[in-house]
Simulated scan of single mutants.
Amino acid sequence: MTIRLLLADGDPRFIERLTSILTVSTVTTCKIVSRTSAAEASAALKTKSFDVALLSYDIVTDDHFELFDFYGPTANRTAIIVLSDYPRKDWAFAALQKGAVDFIVKNRIDSFDLVKAIAYAMFRKCKEFELRISALRDPLTGIGNRNLFDEQAQTLLNQAKRGQERAAVLFMDVDGLKAINDTHGHALGDRLLNQVATRIVGQMRESDVVARIGGDEFVALLMHVNASNSISMIERKLNRAVVQTPYQINGIDIRIDISCGSAIYPDDSREISDLLQIADKRMYEKKSRKKARPPHHPVLYWSKS
Rank of each mutant, 00 (worst) to 15 (best):
A8S: 15
R124E: 12
N250K: 10
D208W: 07
E16R: 11
Y71V: 15
T36M: 12
F65P: 07
L67N: 01
A53V: 04
N107T: 11
I258Q: 00
S207T: 14
K127N: 10
T29E: 14
L114E: 07
R282D: 06
D110S: 10
S207C: 11
Y120R: 10
K178N: 02
V52Y: 09
A44L: 07
I258P: 01
D69K: 12
V174L: 15
R17Y: 15
G10P: 10
Y120S: 03
R166A: 07
R282W: 07
I231F: 00
N76P: 00
L238H: 01
I200M: 06
G185T: 02
S230L: 03
T78N: 06
D208V: 02
D274M: 12
A39D: 14
T61V: 08
R240M: 05
L18M: 14
D268H: 12
T78W: 05
G99Q: 04
P87K: 05
R270E: 13
H224V: 04
T47K: 14
K161A: 13
L148V: 00
R236F: 01
D268M: 06
M223C: 14
T2Y: 09
G163S: 13
D11P: 09
F93M: 12
L148F: 12
T74A: 12
S259G: 15
K290L: 14
R166F: 08
L6P: 06
K48D: 14
A92L: 08
H297M: 13
A279Q: 04
S34E: 09
D253H: 10
N229H: 13
S111N: 05
Q277F: 04
Q203P: 01
Y284C: 05
I213S: 00
K178F: 03
D216R: 03
C260Y: 00
K106A: 04
F149I: 04
T26F: 08
S288D: 08
N107I: 03
N147R: 15
M122Q: 15
K286M: 08
Y284A: 06
D216E: 15
D63S: 12
E235T: 15
A92H: 03
H297D: 10
A39S: 14
N226H: 07
T2W: 07
L131V: 08
R88C: 06
D11F: 09
V243N: 06
A44S: 15
A187N: 06
A121C: 07
E235S: 12
D102R: 09
K291F: 05
Q195A: 11
H184V: 02
S288W: 02
F129K: 12
R137C: 07
S134M: 14
D253R: 08
T183S: 14
D138N: 04
A41M: 08
I59D: 02
R270F: 01
P298F: 04
L55C: 09
D9N: 14
